[in-house]
């Protein structure tokens, strides 16, 4: 039976894999996937905290606050992915590339 630490380690590993990919990969699609990994790392952490450290019912807040956060993040992440992919398609039509280091119009 895994305890809180296992959840936290899994969440941290997921987040670190995501951030490593986000900082090093050049492909926008991979970048978006890495962002998803980071968000899901957070989700695992939130759900884990809620499972093991939730306050008693009726004290101050909902006993499902962690799960609710995770659900909202999933919804927002879905919207973000849709928006991100739409931007990627639009950029690709203009620049014919999805390599993020080639998209530098804002260079000073």
């Amino acid at each position: 039976m895994p305890g809180l630490n296992q959840f936290l380690i899994l969440g941290a590993v997921l987040f670190c894999v995501g951030i490593y990919g986000a900082l090093t990969k050049r492909n926008v699609i991979v970048l978006l996937m890495c962002l998803e990994l980071m968000l899901n790392g957070i989700n695992v952490t939130l759900v884990g905290f809620n499972r093991f450290l939730a306050p008693p019912v009726g004290v101050s807040s909902s006993p499902f606050a962690g799960q609710m956060f995770a659900l909202f993040i999933i919804a927002v992440a879905a919207a973000e992915a849709a928006l991100g992919l739409a931007i990627v398609i639009a950029v690709y039509r203009v620049r014919h590339t999805v390599q993020v280091d080639e998209i530098d119009l804002l260079r000073g």
Binding site: A22, L23, V100, D101, I103, D104, L106, R107, G108
Partner: peptide
């Protein structure tokens, strides 16, 4: 303008 590379990942590194 040296700071303003236009590379989104550079900004990400700075934030990180």
């Amino acid at each position: 303008r040296g700071f303003q590379t236009g590379q989104v990942q550079t900004y990400a590194w700075v934030v990180f």
